[in-house]
Write a protein that binds this DNA or RNA. Structure first.
Lengths: 352, 352
DNA sequence: GTTATATTTTTGATCGATCCAATGAGCCCA
DNA sequence: TGGGCTCATTGGATCGATCAAAAATATAAC
């Protein structure tokens, strides 16, 4: 069979093919590719024409190997299906792309076992750095073992369990959960509420813990009591929240308002309230956390804390990229501010 | 300075380092890494111990270079922030990971210009194949030019504009939009509606076009007329849909039901109806498309078509992986079925 | 015409792995 | 003792790019 037939079924075009055809050396072609000023105008033109003609595509892996560089950032998420993280991922990818890197994706589905497997697989592809939103039950030592001490890591949203080995200088980007929830609680207090519940989430997740702390802080500063049955735990999903609504009203005195762990929970609670014949935003005040897309569109529109996940994504990428430029940089714990957006769900208490 | 000091700040550990320390050749270490049965039990044990000791991590890029293989799949999405695509991405990543590949992510933000840039960047990393959900205005010729004829491509959700060059054998995975919308329309007809609107989306997107065709088909089969003002176009977002509600009622006769382009539009329409004092699910019937998470939790719960984006993601990945195994495989156009899930939003027409 | 200087191009090693053909060791049996 | 055979191991070339230093060519200076 002939070396090449009509159909272009050949192997990939390399720098060598171009060099041969142009009767120059590999090195010259390489210089052209990188836009070096060293190469003569006419040579450059000839080579560029040939690159086009043969449909050459740059092999970045080969270049990275020789230069001992990397052009990728790994992004490992506990839950891509959650719109909050999806937006975050979009932000990361945009910033990573702008910096000339590409994003390697890994999803852990909230399983720390998968997390280790995913990290182990990604690390073999030699990312320049990793952005990790830890799964529940993620363990710092294990993560370190899977990664080695060399790869820069930025932790987003929560800290893995177990104490961080101090020689692993990992950067952190967190939301200001405590202050956010304090603001929401204070807002309800200002509106005249005195019996305020904290609704949803699991207290053993660090973000829920922090948000709860903000709630307690605001209540204590206002000198308001907290009843045990005003603190209802449930999975951070709409369904679970709707189903847990009753718990708020099992004992007297019932609350007149609730700050919710996040928007999903808040929307679920509003659903549950409706089912009990209570109109959220009129008979009972509700606040959320995150400001997901539906928050402003719900009935009634939801008072919540804007976390701006896309902007957080950009920020995470930028923090990591800075760390790449300066490995010696001091470890940073960044706390992103959140701000309260007041909508109709946070009514004053009923006149009764 | 000593060869190694206290802190492990050295360059990466390679197969050579291991070989030297074990006094064997590179080749042997390589065989151990790949679990070859050729290597002696004791040698293997020694090498494996040394691998652990030095914290070796496999350099897959180098291996891929030599073997002329690839271990990544590129996933290019028009809109990651959309929960439908986020779920899809999660499904792709899971299946891709199961097959021992990793996912390279690229977002185009619905811009065909960015799409070309993203494809150009990804292709340099040599993915084994690409899954592409085209941006609006994406053009087949340009995509082909950015990709070259070699890289297997699977198109999801919509077809790029321009006629496909026939020598580019691209696989397709689409939703059964037309049949889905026919089912929804027929369901409303069965419930007793005779004046049914088609609401939302832009007719120039192929998915909207197909869904509209399904609507028309069902109406014609039932011998029902379609008034021009029952066909309202708007951006596929909640806000736009809510704002376009009035258009349905500007002229007589007003419809008693609407099939909506997708769930976001349907939820927006329900909002708009509420604002007009009409209760969706009692005074006016509404259906959606996609079955996003909120659909079952809305007030009232939304009758819609289940597209199962996560399963579609898995399917897309599997179709592509099959194509990798058999390049000669006949080009496939796969149409994923959707099924109707009936909830309370699709009430019968008011008695009047 | 020769030396010096600037410009352009090339040679050969290299990154970290894999492949192939060749080699060495150990064993059995004639 | 050596030929044949299996079992383990190895050297050297290779993938597609880059780099450093050397070489070739052109231009300028005297």
């Amino acid at each position: 069979m002939a070396k090449e037939t009509t159909h272009p079924v050949h192997r990939k075009v390399t720098i060598n093919d171009i060099a041969r055809e142009c009767a120059v050396s590999r090195a010259t072609v390489s210089l052209v590719l990188r836009g070096s000023p060293l190469v003569n105008k006419h040579t450059r033109a000839r080579v560029e024409e040939e690159l086009r003609r043969q449909g050459y595509v740059y092999n970045r892996a080969a270049a990275n190997l020789r230069r001992r560089t990397s052009s990728s950032i790994a992004l490992v998420l506990n839950d891509l299906a959650n719109p909050f993280f999806a937006e975050f991922a979009a932000g990361v990818d945009a910033a990573v792309g702008d910096a000339g890197f590409i994003t390697l994706l890994g999803c852990t589905s909230e399983s720390s076992t998968r997390e280790l497997a995913v990290l182990g697989s990604l690390i073999e592809h030699g990312p320049a750095g990793i952005i990790l939103s830890p799964a529940e039950g993620s363990n710092a030592q294990q993560v370190l073992a899977a990664l080695g001490p060399r790869t820069p890591l930025l932790l987003f949203n929560r800290e893995p369990g177990g104490n961080l080995p101090e020689y692993a200088h990992w950067d952190l980007l967190m939301l200001d959960n405590q202050r956010g929830m304090r603001l929401a609680t204070e807002h309800l207090i200002t509106r005249g509420h005195r019996r305020i519940a904290f609704f949803g989430g699991h207290r053993d997740s660090s973000s829920c813990y922090q948000r709860h702390a903000g709630y307690v802080e605001a209540m204590q500063m206002a000198g308001l009591p907290i009843e045990p049955h005003w603190q209802v735990e449930c999975a951070p999903t709409r369904i679970d929240a709707a189903g847990s609504t009753a718990a708020l009203f099992e004992h007297a005195p019932a609350p007149t308002a609730a700050v919710c762990y996040n928007d999903a929970v808040a929307l679920g609670l509003m659903l549950g309230l409706n089912q009990r014949g209570l109109r959220p935003g009129r008979d009972f005040a509700v606040t959320g956390f995150d400001d997901i897309a539906e928050a402003s569109m719900s009935m009634p529109p939801l008072t919540t804390l804007v976390a701006a996940p896309r902007a957080r994504g950009r920020q995470a990428a930028e923090l990591l990229l800075q760390r790449l430029h300066d490995t010696a940089l001091h470890t940073r714990r960044t706390v992103a501010p959140v701000h309260l957006v007041i909508r109709e769900s946070s009514c004053p208490p009923p006149a009764s």
